[in-house]
């Protein structure tokens, strides 16, 4: 292989690092987006037998948003292998123990069950907050678009702006808020 062709090969199969902000995102919906980048499905050169998957760095995984009452109702099953070793952990319990676990399991589950996904998962980095080690962040060259719009919370808007927002009426002094 000539030098030019070798460089062409490196360029085509270069791994890209993507960052994905999990803030206010449904982990089960975004898992299907992250999966595409991890497996390289978004590339025109994709083939199940070539190694063209990318690296995805997930940040803010503690700020994920589950639908409806899923925090209370969704259970994660584990069995130790011993009799009576089954345990069901609710989503909110699991999230309190490890805020990266829900998104990790969601991505793992979104890939069809072959052994390759163990290796594909090695390319997924999840961080509970937006603090990412420098040696990871310096590789990132692309950002994956979120699925949902991140709303701004009222207590995050500066007080000045809230005060100056046009109002129809003011509550009377002696009004008791329920």
């Amino acid at each position: 292989m000539s030098a030019a062709k070798r460089v062409q090969q490196w360029a085509t199969f270069a791994r890209t690092w993507h960052v994905f902000d999990c803030k206010w995102q449904d982990p089960y919906e975004s898992a299907h987006v992250i999966k595409k980048y991890l497996m390289g499905l978004h590339k025109p050169i994709y083939h199940p037998m070539n190694d063209c998957g990318d690296v995805v760095v997930c940040i803010n995984s503690k700020d994920i948003a589950l639908r409806g009452n899923e925090w209370r109702k969704r259970a994660y099953f584990h069995h130790t292998g011993y009799p009576g070793g089954a345990s069901w952990t609710l989503a909110w319990e699991l999230h309190n123990k490890d805020p990266t676990m829900i998104i990790k399991k969601a991505v793992y589950r979104s890939m069809t069950g072959n052994l390759q996904r163990r290796h594909t998962m090695q390319r997924l980095f999840i961080y509970p907050e937006d603090k990412v080690p420098e040696d990871v962040m310096q590789n990132v060259t692309n950002q994956i678009r979120q699925i949902r719009l991140v709303p701004t919370r009222l207590d995050h808007i500066p007080e000045e702006e809230v005060k100056n927002f046009p109002k129809i009426m003011d509550y009377p002094e002696d009004y008791v808020l329920k």
């Binding site: 960052v19 994905f20 902000d21 940040i59 937006d130 962040m137 990132v140 060259t141 692309n142 950002q143 994956i144 678009r145 979120q146 699925i147 949902r148 719009l149 991140v150």
Partner: peptide
């Protein structure tokens, strides 16, 4: 993206 400081909501937010 060459000069962007990632993560940036300009590239990360859903625009569709």
């Amino acid at each position: 993206l060459n000069t962007a400081q990632l993560p940036d909501p300009k590239f990360g937010a859903n625009n569709r």
